[in-house]
């Protein structure tokens, strides 16, 4: 089963990654969008919530490893993956 991991606190990234499988994806929301401004060594597909980037003045700073998405796509992702796990 594939899982969409939803992360809202950047400091929990390392912890979250320890439980991810190759087909899983990471969705960065709220404060965790700052992660998307740096290049990362993770091999996982990374999505980032566009409004949370814009709100923080970071939309232009997003690294090309991540895909910015709107709320419509957010809903679609929760359907595309077997389940969503908010890593709190």
């Amino acid at each position: 089963m594939s899982t969409l991991f939803i992360l809202n606190q950047p400091e929990l990234l390392d912890d979250c990654i320890t439980v991810m499988q190759p087909d899983d994806a990471l969705l960065l929301i709220e404060n965790a969008v700052v992660i998307a401004t740096k290049s990362s060594t993770t091999q996982y597909k990374m999505f980032v919530l566009k409004d949370d980037l814009i709100a923080r003045g970071l939309f232009e700073s997003i690294h090309d490893q991540s895909t910015a998405i709107d709320f419509s796509k957010f809903v679609e992702l929760t359907l595309a993956y077997d389940k969503s796990v908010s890593w709190l």
């Binding site: 709220e30 709320f71 419509s72 957010f74 679609e76």
Partner: peptide, 20 residues
């Protein structure tokens, strides 16, 4: 204190708008 209520509200509205 946290942003989560607002994020949840936007998400819930979108779920309904998409007919789910």
């Amino acid at each position: 204190t946290a942003q989560g209520q607002y994020t949840a509200l936007r998400f819930a509205n979108e779920v309904i708008n998409k007919g789910h």
